[in-house]
Amino acid sequence: MLGRAVAQTIGRNGHTVTVLQRRPSGLDYAEIQGDITDQQVVRSAVKDQQAVIHLAARVSPAGRWRDFADVNIGGTSNLINASQQAGVTRFVYVSSPSVASSGKAHIGESALPADPASTRSYYARSKAEAEQLVLARAGGEMAVTAVRPHLVWGPGDEQLVARVVRRATSGSLRLIGSGAALVDSTYVDNAADALAAALDQAPAIDGQALVISNGEPRPVTELLRGLCDAAGFELPMRCVPTWAAKAGGALVEAVWAAGRLTTDPPMTRFLAEQLSTAHWYDQRLTRELLDWTPTVSIDDGLARLADWYR
């Protein structure tokens, strides 16, 4: 969803866009199909490009470390090496705030350095290592930057919205704790605008990591309620205590790992923490450096989501 929105945004801004996808995108741009773990494909994709925005990642709450490492670290490594060789001058890596999340609450902080050792999931750890890999190239001919959108949602979203809706319809969605933890989120169009802005500002923000969000944190209950409302479901008000969710998450992770299951697990520790502790960020520096502000508020975004579901 975000990749599509970014391609359209920078295309509208007058850039010539090429997309590298595993499956056909259905977009009106030059397209290369393939996997970023394939060096050959990557080299041909970045050939003659001036800038690369890297959004490809394995995103899943569960799975084996190898699978995350191969795509998120190996793939990123392929891409940045190839980009440097091809003379690309701007490289924007789409990261995640979870790369600096050790399970503690984030309360109005700005982006902290990625810390793979303290991350709480394979996804976050692989993204953190990849971010370090990218930012280590700062100071060269190619400007590198990491942009970390927090909880992206919008029409067509397969990560947050679709999961919440699936759970809500199957009756397996639970609120954790009092559901009051304040969380930031990002409407997809705002994230796309911010990435386009990062591309424009790349030389000025070489080597930096920036968190982006709508800058409108909400209690997690209110956010989920809004997403369910937009999709036409009522948010179930069943709650689980935080400790139970974390313990259950740990158990589920063990079972999924032992069984090599690839389906979505009902709960993980990472998810339990994300849903029960505050995660909101200082947007002042981000907005100043990117010369960007979100144009779609949460309320407007929810209205658009509701339209999309209708």
């Binding site: 609450a105 309360i107 704790g177 009051a180 304040l182 502790t277």
Partner: peptide, 8 residues
């Protein structure tokens, strides 16, 4: 406390 995710 509650907005941090703590027990009220």
């Amino acid at each position: 406390t509650v907005l941090r995710g703590g027990k009220p």
